[in-house]
Measured scan of single mutants.
Amino acid sequence: NQASVVANQLIPINTALTLAMMRSEVVTPVGIPAEDIPRLVSMQVNRAVPLGTTLMPDMVKGYA
């Protein structure tokens, strides 16, 4: 099963992502692949992401 990127904390809108904000977890539906975590660092979210939410490509500016 593919691990996805999950929010490790509440991430406010327009926040630049850091490693501490993300974790890898096997979830359904599948979100951004966990191997993309290094690429996500310093990218901004375009909405508030609650703790435990799977990051989807449309939630991260410049990812999709």
Rank of each mutant, 00 (worst) to 15 (best):
N1V: 15
N1C: 12
N1I: 15
N1F: 15
Q2W: 11
Q2T: 08
Q2S: 09
Q2V: 08
A3V: 09
A3G: 13
A3H: 10
A3N: 09
A3W: 06
S4R: 02
S4F: 04
V5F: 02
V5N: 00
V5H: 00
V5T: 09
V5D: 01
V5S: 03
V6E: 02
V6Q: 05
A7S: 09
N8M: 10
N8S: 12
N8D: 08
Q9G: 05
Q9H: 10
Q9F: 12
Q9N: 10
L10K: 06
L10G: 14
L10I: 12
I11L: 11
I11H: 00
I11A: 01
I11R: 00
I11Y: 01
I11V: 14
I11T: 02
P12H: 10
P12L: 07
P12V: 11
P12S: 10
P12A: 08
I13C: 05
I13W: 07
I13M: 10
I13A: 12
N14P: 00
N14D: 13
N14K: 05
N14Y: 12
N14Q: 11
T15N: 06
T15A: 10
T15Y: 15
T15I: 06
A16W: 12
A16Y: 14
A16F: 11
L17T: 00
L17W: 00
T18H: 06
L19G: 04
L19F: 14
A20H: 12
M21L: 08
M22S: 01
M22A: 00
M22L: 11
M22W: 02
R23E: 03
R23Y: 04
S24I: 15
S24A: 14
S24F: 09
E25D: 15
E25L: 06
E25P: 01
E25F: 08
E25W: 05
V26S: 09
V26M: 07
V26Y: 11
V27K: 11
V27C: 04
V27P: 02
T28Y: 08
T28D: 15
T28W: 04
T28P: 02
P29E: 14
V30A: 08
V30H: 12
G31N: 00
G31Y: 02
I32S: 01
I32V: 12
I32W: 02
P33C: 04
P33R: 10
P33T: 10
P33E: 04
P33N: 11
A34T: 08
A34L: 04
A34S: 10
A34G: 07
A34N: 06
E35N: 12
E35D: 09
D36F: 09
D36R: 05
D36C: 07
I37T: 06
I37K: 05
I37W: 03
P38M: 11
P38H: 13
P38F: 08
R39F: 11
R39N: 07
R39T: 05
R39P: 02
V41Y: 08
V41W: 13
V41E: 05
S42Q: 13
S42L: 14
S42C: 06
S42E: 07
S42N: 07
M43D: 03
M43E: 05
M43A: 04
Q44F: 14
V45L: 12
N46Y: 12
N46L: 13
R47K: 12
R47I: 14
R47N: 08
R47S: 10
R47P: 02
R47Y: 14
A48H: 12
A48G: 09
A48K: 06
V49I: 14
V49P: 01
V49Y: 02
V49E: 01
V49G: 01
P50H: 13
P50W: 13
P50Y: 13
P50T: 06
L51V: 08
L51E: 09
L51W: 14
G52H: 11
G52D: 08
G52I: 01
T53A: 08
T53W: 15
T53P: 01
T54G: 03
T54E: 02
T54H: 03
L55D: 01
L55S: 01
L55W: 00
M56V: 14
P57V: 08
P57F: 11
P57R: 13
P57G: 13
D58E: 11
D58Q: 08
D58P: 09
M59F: 09
V60W: 02
V60G: 00
K61L: 10
K61M: 09
K61G: 07
K61E: 10
K61A: 13
G62V: 05
G62E: 13
G62I: 04
G62S: 10
G62D: 07
Y63W: 13
Y63S: 03
Y63G: 03
A64W: 03
A64L: 11
